[in-house]
Design a binder for these strands. Structure first.
Lengths: 353, 353
DNA sequence: TTAAGATAAGAAACCGATTTCATAAAACGA
DNA sequence: TCGTTTTATGAAATCGGTTTCTTATCTTAA
């Protein structure tokens, strides 16, 4: 009980190290940054003292002088959604490899929060911003957001997963068309003709593109487009998809296959199907997007589109870092998805309709 | 096409503002920090110019001078696990209310990463660290970690969800005993006697406490403890729980109820049960921990222990901030869980065994 | 009307690193 | 051996804010 020591002990600085090593602060800094021109002997002495005190240079001071924070800000819609969690962790790992730290914010679907977070990230002087989902994916609020991004970020590079025309944002997209190609070729190959597409919101770019492609592919295969088989839910959650699916089945519309806009929606759809005493996949096949772990945890396990999160995250971060460090990068890059087949899909039931 | 303007435009500073407003930088700073002694007229003029340029003070410069970063570092085991994602988002929201930013790192189960991240957070001079899971929960690696935390963090307050004796860490725990009480009272009340407990690792404090309490409660209700009903899997994932459950059922051991150590484990157990042609809950009741959204997405939906994430996150952050700002806080706080009953649980099947 | 206290605002120091500049010492070449 | 280049080092400026210290101005009370 000799007083509350730990309360105000000031952090050790480069000057403390310098004094103890009997050199100047500049020399210590040279050792820290690994630059040349320090004699072996002093270097050893300095390193030893640094180690002794477990000294770590103050990132703020460092960032202030070289105007590089070595931080990448990430704005995600909601990490509680495993899709974002996967992308985020992939980004974190990629960033770590390049010597960067990531700062995560969740906008939780509020455009106002996005703005505030953009401001906050700018205050932190992050070297780049990666935005996953949110306004950049929204065909409507997009327009106002452009202005904000332009005025706020100035020189800070921004990488988005959606679209943001009129800004100098870099885009890394999942090839939405391609995902639909994979699913439709697969389903049609299994004999499906009555294919429903459920969930999401058409204001969201990727969803819009998927629906467009869906129509194109039907046409290519000479299958009539049935309006009643495509249903927005406005959200990407299970509850919405479930009630929309209930509605469809209650109307006597029973597709042989359902494409869920994401895994959550798939969960709701599965429940609806089961509650209507249909079997999966014997009566109805169901496939989904995202391939998050719940596809594996459900019964039956879900056939799903995988985005290859590791590659996606890596590309996002590498792009951000490259731009931040002044290297040339293409404005638009695409990541190619794959299809993972599990238990929830099979041949179309005979008869169809 | 008039040259690449945006590339190197230096960010605007307080001095630029001061010059344009024809005041000193000190006055601008006074306006920014909201301190008194600025005439209404100058204040208005300054604010207007700040707004005009969308100026945001450089957080590093600010943090450097007042040695407050206003950042709370969070080390989580893995946000892809929805449990951590929930806690994290709760923390983020709580922090936002108090004017703090959170910086998230995932240790991904590697003790070496935890150390590195602790160092990184220290470099960033975060005002406090919150650690969710990982070494602080581990009864074994705990010991070495204590030393590291002490030497590295010095004055930086740390709040953990586990235990870390020998440090001045603050603890905010979920009352593990209480969770087991809730589950066991509920199950025993439904007539269950053969209650299995599956998943996890006994080195993890919370798991250890749960098993201890489980035994105590059996005794209190004069039910024999059956060693074969309690099985570690070493992990908290579905695959491990599934194979352990398979093993148990294949040995002809069929409990009337199973407590899964978390929702993921529950998913694996459900699959095993279904594959053994048992019904849930008619033949076997299953309950779990965490109450993440998958409890709702599964069929049947899972009865689960809810931790009240919002309150949990709030308490974690409030504690961290309070300590950082020099206020008094109890060293140990507890959050009380509740039980959410869904479809996966019901009365014990007649006969038992 | 004047002394005392409150208010407004600038100058300058400071936070903790990096980096430029200057200089001294060592190595090198002829 | 002397001039030149290279290497090692410290002093000082800088990054962009906050804050302390002064000083000037304005109130207010006696």
């Amino acid at each position: 009980m000799d007083g509350d020591r730990s309360a105000e002990e000031k952090a050790i600085t480069i000057y403390d190290i310098a004094r103890e090593a009997e050199v100047s602060a500049a020399t210590v800094s040279r050792v820290l940054t690994g630059s040349a021109n320090v004699s072996q002997e002093k270097k050893r002495r300095i390193l030893q003292i640094i180690d002794k005190y477990n000294f770590r240079p103050n990132a703020m001071a460092r960032g202030l002088s070289d105007t590089r924070s070595k931080i990448i800000g990430i704005i995600a819609a909601d990490v509680r959604n495993p899709y974002y969690a996967q992308v985020f962790v992939a980004c974190e790992l990629a960033a770590r490899k390049l010597g960067y730290t990531v700062l995560l914010c969740n906008s939780l679907g509020e455009a106002r929060q996005e703005k505030k977070q953009l401001e906050m990230l700018h205050e932190q002087r992050v070297d780049a911003v990666i935005q996953l989902g949110g306004s950049v994916d929204d065909l409507v609020s997009n327009v106002e957001y452009v202005e904000l991004v332009n005025s706020l970020l100035g020189a800070t590079p921004m990488v988005v997963t959606g679209k943001l025309d009129g800004t100098q944002c870099y885009q890394v997209q999942i090839d939405a068309m391609k995902t639909m190609d994979l699913l439709m070729e697969y389903l049609i190959g299994l004999g499906h003709r009555d294919i429903a597409l459920i969930g999401g919101r058409l204001d969201v770019l990727s969803t819009f593109e998927k629906v467009q492609r869906y129509k194109q592919l039907l046409q290519r295969h000479q299958i009539d487009f049935r309006r009643e088989l495509v249903r927005e839910t406005g959200f990407y959650d299970a509850a919405g998809a479930r009630s929309v699916m209930n509605e469809m089945l209650d109307q006597g519309i029973v597709p042989t296959a359902v494409i869920a806009i994401n895994d959550f929606s798939a969960a709701g759809i599965v429940r609806s199907i089961v509650e209507h005493s249909c079997r999966i996949p014997e009566d109805i096949t169901i496939v989904s997007y995202d391939n998050t772990y719940i596809t594996d945890h459900m019964i039956p396990s879900l056939t799903s589109i995988d985005y290859n999160y590791e590659r996606f995250g890596t590309k996002l971060v590498e792009t951000a870092v490259a731009v931040a460090e002044g290297r040339e990068v293409p404005k638009l890059q695409r990541v190619t998805p794959t299809l993972v087949i599990r238990e929830s899909s099979g041949p179309a039931r005979p008869g169809g309709r």
